[in-house]
Amino acid sequence: MDTSDVSTIDPGHVGEADKDRFRTLSSSMAQGTAVVTAIHQGHDYASPVTAYLSVSYDPPTLLISLYADGRIAEAVESADRWTLSLLNAEQKSVADWLAAPGSPLHGLLRPVPHVRPRPGAPVIIDKALAWFEVETTAIHPAATHLLVVGEVRAMGRTVPPDAVRHPLLRFDGRYRRLD
Results as ranks from 00 to 15, higher is better:
Asp2Cys: 04
Ser4Cys: 06
Ser4Ala: 10
Val6Ile: 15
Ser7Arg: 14
Ile9Ser: 09
Asp10Ser: 14
Asp10Thr: 14
Gly12Gln: 13
His13Val: 01
Val14Trp: 11
Val14Ile: 13
Glu16Gly: 02
Asp18Tyr: 13
Asp18Ile: 10
Lys19Thr: 06
Lys19Ile: 13
Lys19Cys: 03
Arg21Trp: 05
Arg21Leu: 14
Arg21Cys: 05
Arg23Phe: 13
Thr24Val: 06
Leu25Met: 11
Ser27Trp: 01
Ser27Asn: 12
Ser28His: 14
Ala30Asn: 05
Ala34Gln: 05
Ala38Gly: 04
Gln41Phe: 03
Ala46Gln: 11
Ser47Cys: 14
Thr50Gly: 15
Ala51Gly: 11
Leu53Val: 07
Val55Ser: 00
Ser56Arg: 05
Tyr57Asn: 05
Thr61Ile: 01
Ile64Tyr: 02
Asp69Lys: 08
Arg71Phe: 01
Arg71Gly: 04
Ile72Ala: 06
Ala73Val: 02
Val76Ser: 04
Ser78Asn: 12
Asp80Thr: 15
Leu86Cys: 11
Ala89Lys: 10
Gln91Pro: 12
Gln91His: 08
Ala95His: 05
Trp97Val: 15
Trp97Lys: 01
Gly102Ala: 03
Leu105His: 04
Leu105Lys: 03
Leu108His: 09
Val115Leu: 04
Val115Asp: 03
Arg116Ala: 02
Pro117Tyr: 04
Pro119Val: 09
Gly120Arg: 08
Ala121Gln: 14
Ile124Arg: 13
Ile125Val: 15
Lys127Ala: 13
Ala128Ile: 01
Ala130Tyr: 09
Ala130Gln: 02
Ala130Phe: 09
Phe132Ile: 00
Thr137Ile: 04
Ala138Asn: 06
Pro141Glu: 14
Pro141Leu: 08
Pro141Cys: 11
Ala142Met: 12
Ala142His: 05
His145Leu: 01
His145Asn: 13
Leu147Glu: 06
Arg153Asn: 02
Arg157Phe: 06
Thr158Leu: 12
Val159Ala: 15
Val159Pro: 00
Val164Ala: 04
Arg165Trp: 08
Pro167Asp: 03
Asp172Thr: 07
Gly173Gln: 06
Gly173Val: 13
Tyr175Gly: 07
Tyr175Cys: 05
Arg176Asp: 13
Arg176Asn: 08
Arg177Thr: 15
Arg177Trp: 13
Asp179Cys: 01
